[in-house]
Simulated assay, not measured.
Amino acid sequence: MYKRQQLVGTDPATGKEKWRTEKNIGDTTVESAGPSLVRVRGYAGDGGTRFDQLLKPGTGKVQADVPEGLDNLSCPFDQAKTLVCTSQNRLVALDSTSGKELWRLEDDQADGRFAPDVTASWHGRIYARTSSTTAVVLDARTGKDRPAGLDVAPVLVNDYQGLVLVGRELLAYPTRG
Rank of each mutant, 00 (worst) to 15 (best):
T59I: 06
A153F: 03
R129K: 15
L55E: 06
Q109L: 08
G149S: 11
Y43R: 13
P116Q: 04
P174C: 09
R20F: 02
G177H: 11
G112P: 05
R39I: 13
S36C: 00
G69E: 03
D46R: 06
A64G: 10
S96R: 01
V66I: 15
R50I: 13
T21F: 06
P116L: 03
R50K: 14
R113S: 15
K144C: 00
L70S: 08
A148C: 01
A13Y: 02
V118C: 04
P76M: 09
E169K: 14
M1H: 07
V118N: 04
T133L: 10
G112S: 09
Y173F: 15
D107L: 02
Y2L: 04
E169N: 13
K3I: 11
R113Y: 03
Q161S: 12
S131R: 04
F77K: 03
P116E: 03
Y43D: 13
G9K: 01
A13P: 00
T175E: 13
R168W: 02
G177T: 14
A93H: 01
V38Q: 03
R4V: 13
Y173M: 06
T29D: 14
R168F: 06
P116K: 02
L156V: 09
A64Y: 03
T14L: 10
D78N: 13
N72G: 07
K3E: 13
S87Y: 00
E31F: 05
V30F: 08
D52A: 10
T10L: 13
T21L: 12
R50V: 14
L102A: 05
R41F: 07
W122G: 07
G48S: 07
V152G: 02
M1P: 04
A115I: 12
K144I: 00
P154G: 11
V62R: 10
V8G: 01
Q161E: 14
K23T: 12
S74I: 09
S131G: 10
E17T: 13
G9Y: 02
P35A: 11
L105Y: 14
S36M: 01
G47F: 04
N72H: 12
G45T: 00
A172G: 11
K81A: 12
C75H: 04
V30K: 05
Q161C: 10
Q63L: 00
G162Y: 09
N158M: 07
D117P: 00
L55A: 02
G34L: 01
P174Y: 08
G58T: 05
T142G: 09
V137S: 12
F114C: 04
R113K: 15
W122N: 13
